[in-house]
Design a protein around this nucleic acid. Structure first.
Lengths: 194, 194
DNA sequence: TTTTATTGATTGACGAGTTAATAAAAATCC
DNA sequence: GGATTTTTATTAACTCGTCAATCAATAAAA
């Protein structure tokens, strides 16, 4: 009984299931079978729509990155000053959604795979470039060296995220606060009025 | 023809082979068979000495962390002032040895596995605590908030390393320089004379 | 009748960990 | 000092399991 127009529904179900499954397992060692089962279909159908495991995984990654982009966009829309824009970007990076176990696992997997998988590497680069570009734009009115400041902030964000996500000692709020403090320092105390 | 006292030789050969193999493959998807072959022995012998794949991998991780510790120790020994000590720690984190492909792969794998593997998580925490403690000690005479400063520097270092290791745009020297600049900013321009 | 949806069953491959066996050095005993 | 027992070293062969990907078949909509 082939209901027509199933492709988009199936694809999205598989993407969701992939993220959930990676989150539950904590790593990439999830099988197409597990994913398909969680999405309520057969292995064969998953292969039919995506072609292979790699492509399923990439689609899931793209989905997470798109969600993150949305998060940033919404916050940037409400920011009226350059400083507020910088704060908005930082806020997006430490949003609760970024700390969902599934999201954390997906990010770690992304990092680990970026070394060997070209598609993954491209995706990671895309994220890094966007973050950098957003930060540069926000910081340009606030410092003589927006490029250096953006690189520093971006790296600090990644590092804080890594620590907060993996270490038991630190939590998301603390990391967020540390990033905001650093932003204030980088930009110079005189500009810190939002 | 059992030559006696093979155990330490075999173990160390396996550790070396594991790192090389992970470096060559770029990820954790290396088999015990591959490792054993590179180390010049049978799969069974690898299991005999280590018990299982997890323990082989953990031993390799410990080896890399030990090497990093040595690198830091040597540099710290020659540092005469607090500022020089901080610089020495940063220098160790961006030493060429940290950017060997095998080392990068091992680090990424460490991050990815820390979520699910307890032993790996412990190892990672150990590294993070040591780095933090070293930095706090070095920064204590230079700032009122050595703890915050250490957390910021440690995260920045991790983030810069991540970017330099994975992105094509940045290189180790550039990352190193950025970290040193940040150190100067954090500590305050007045203290920047080594 | 062609296209879209769907899956059970299968293929082919690989891999972690075990076992049973061989061999020689070292330790113990007579 | 020679015989034996134990310990250490070593691997070929095997078990048991998994999993990605494919195929052949079924069914209904266009």
């Amino acid at each position: 009984m082939p209901k027509l127009g199933m492709e988009p529904i199936r694809r999205s179900a598989l993407v969701t299931a992939t993220i959930e499954e990676i989150g539950a397992a904590g790593h990439l060692g999830v099988t197409v079978g597990q994913i398909a089962k969680r999405a309520g279909m057969s292995t064969a159908l998953a292969h039919h729509y995506f072609g292979g495991k790699d492509q399923i995984f990439l689609a899931a990654m793209r989905h997470i990155l798109r969600e993150f982009g949305q998060e940033a966009l919404v916050r940037l829309r409400d920011a009226r000053t350059p400083y507020a824009r910088a704060e908005a970007i930082v806020g997006a990076c430490f949003a609760p959604s970024c700390f969902a176990p599934a999201t954390i696992s997906a990010w770690m997997t992304l990092y680990a795979r970026a070394q060997t998988n070209d598609g993954t590497a491209r995706l990671l680069r895309l994220y890094q470039l966007r973050l950098h570009s957003n930060l540069t734009h926000a910081l340009r009115p606030l410092t003589d060296t927006p490029d250096v400041a953006a690189t520093t902030m971006a790296s600090l964000i990644d590092g804080l995220y890594l620590r907060a996500a993996l270490a038991r000692t630190s939590d998301a709020n603390h990391a967020h606060q540390t990033a905001l403090n650093a932003l204030k320092t980088i930009v110079g105390p005189k500009n810190d009025q939002a």
